[in-house]
């Protein structure tokens, strides 16, 4: 009996190959190709390298944050604080670099100090969110709603209601991190790709990633299977914090300032990118490449609307909203069973 089953095991996958390429996996990819063709038909300019590189660069902030969010959501959590966390970290980073400028010449040391404080703050902020949700046993939605408000108001307070601007001399040195490219690829895009690759390996090839899936699927089962649920959860929030730091590090040289408006609604865009990419909001299943596609799709929609008069640019949010809802509806999968 057992032998027959083993034979079936090796035979079945080939037969199923076509049916296994289901919408759930390919959906975001197909959606992106459709958008791509649509963009080209609407305006030739869409496909020129300047525009494409612009789309990629702009996707990187949300994309990098969304890679972190993929871990949090896969493990059954949520982090609403990422947008204001980014604003807060930007603010502190700029303040520190400006302060150092008063005691030393503008140079790489100052930039490294800024980067270091950004990473430290990201880890700390992630740890606080994770610690409160696990050890404090408060729902993630509430904890991060709270920290979202706190970071946002802290930025406003440090900027005295206005804008914190980076010292001009420092900015000159820092500027290339956003505006320069390496081998013809903008640096933010390279960073995005690196983060995505590391994220992919972490989520799919390590014990930590497997534990995220297990906790998101069923926390009890994970606990009974020797998974340290709290510690793994806290790690996902720390990872999210680090991703926010990285996004901030490449964002600051772009505008050279931080204000109360910095990073508004980033949390929603990041979550949307994750969900469009096929990660389940209730946890247990996550895909980094899907998230990358999701971030690209969101940016492409805005870009296409910019290039056409067909739909007003002001309706950007409407189109994004529709896409999110449709994506989730298609992923639910029970529409397939009705056949």
């Amino acid at each position: 009996m057992a032998e027959i089953d083993l034979n079936e095991l090796s035979r079945k996958p080939k037969k199923n190959l076509l049916s296994r390429l289901d919408f759930k996996t390919l959906g975001p990819f197909i959606a992106m190709i459709v958008l791509f063709i649509f963009g080209y038909l609407i305006n030739d300019a869409f496909i020129n390298s300047g525009n494409l590189s612009n789309i990629l660069t702009r996707s990187s902030f949300i994309g990098i944050i969304a890679v972190g969010a993929t871990f949090v959501i896969t493990a059954g959590g949520i982090d609403l604080s990422v947008g204001s966390m980014a604003a807060f970290i930007s603010g502190i980073m700029i303040l520190l670099m400006n302060e150092l400028k008063t005691v030393m010449e503008p140079g790489l040391t100052i930039i490294f100090a800024g980067v270091a404080i950004s990473i430290v703050l990201g880890i700390a902020a992630g740890f606080i969110n994770g610690f409160l949700t696990t050890k404090g046993k408060i729902e993630a939605f509430i904890v991060t709603l709270g920290s979202m408000g706190i970071y946002r108001s802290l930025v406003t307070y440090s900027a005295d209601g206005g804008t914190i601007s980076l010292d001009r001399g420092v900015r000159k040195i820092y500027r290339p991190v956003y505006y320069e490219d390496l081998f013809g690829i903008p640096i933010p895009v390279l960073v995005f790709v690196a983060v995505a690759i590391v994220g992919y390996i972490l989520l799919n090839k390590t014990v930590f990633g497997r534990h995220c899936f297990a906790i998101g699927s069923n926390e009890n089962v994970a606990k009974y299977s020797a998974v340290n649920v709290d510690r793994t959860r806290i790690k996902t929030y720390i990872l999210q914090g680090i991703c926010v730091s990285i996004a901030t590090i490449i964002y600051v040289p772009r505008l050279g300032s931080a204000s109360a408006q910095t990073g508004t609604l980033w949390e929603l865009e990041a979550i949307a990118a994750v969900i469009i990419g096929g990660t389940m909001l209730k946890g247990g299943y996550g895909r980094i490449w899907g998230t990358v596609m999701g971030a690209l799709i969101l940016t492409m929609i805005g870009n296409i609307l910019n290039l056409t008069d067909l739909i007003s640019n002001y309706l950007n949010g409407t189109v994004q909203g529709v896409i999110i809802v449709v994506a989730v509806y298609l992923q639910r999968g029970d529409w397939k069973k009705k056949k």
Partner: peptide, 17 residues
């Protein structure tokens, strides 16, 4: 509720512990 990840396949369940 405590034994198997119902939405996962056999392999991740088998090796989890």
């Amino acid at each position: 509720e405590k034994g198997l990840l119902l939405n996962q396949q056999m392999q991740p369940n088998l090796t989890l512990l």
